[in-house]
Amino acid sequence: MFDLYGYGPSILEGTLLTIELSLAALGISLLLGFIGALFKLSRSPFLEGLARLYTTIIRGIPDLVLMLIVFFGGQVFINRYAPLLGFNGYIDINPFIAGVLTIGFIFGAYMTETFRGAILAVPAGQLEAGFAYGLSRLQVFFRILLPQMIRHAIPGFGNNWLVLVKTTALVSIIGLDDMVRKAALAAGATRKPFTFYLVVALNYLAITSVSVYLLNWMEKRYSAGVIKA
């Protein structure tokens, strides 16, 4: 369909990196989201305030600015304090790690909101019923809360994932060889920027389309037994 002037494998490599980066960042964001949601619903005003500060700050600052703070700021931070720990010589921040951490950190905040809503959507009476039967807190969590909150969390989770995949395009700015940067390199060499960026755009569309298909399947699976109006 497209003549890629031999840059096809390079773009494919970049696509794989985009997918790896997205999945790694998703893992971190899920972890942070769970912790954040538990903090937000905790009885301690300190933990609740901490989680609220986290989500407010993330929603107030653009992803790109956060990424530049982590990438450039982290570089300065490490090189200022590493010598104190006995490291000498210049340390370069790995853009993959900077990207995964920043994107995971950003989407942890969005996941926090999603999970908080999902936990609240499970009727409290069911949890109480669990305790009344003598289940432990862990048993109530794994047998009653988790299976049901997943169903409520899937739509929000899906949205967050789709936005996350698109956000990974920003790592090309801090020099990571994802598919956008591979396309930029190919475009520079062949003077065919439109072709390469369009191919990358179609790759993103493919990733998001497959995701939407899987998410619909998951939603159906976890909604088993729910009566539709």
């Binding site: 789709l162 698109k166 956000t167 990974t168 395009a169 920003l170 090309s172 700015i173 956008v180 396309a183 930029a184 475009a187 003077r191 065919k192 920027p193 439109f194 072709t195 960026y197 369009l198 990358v200 755009a201 993103y204 569309l205 998001t208 389309s209």
Partner: peptide, 23 residues
């Protein structure tokens, strides 16, 4: 809508800024 919601804004901007000059 499908195209613009399914692709990153950065790539859309690159297509317009760098890409259109190809023609």
């Amino acid at each position: 809508v499908y195209f613009f919601r399914g692709t990153p804004l950065l790539v859309q901007m690159f297509i317009i800024y760098y890409g259109l000059g190809q023609f």
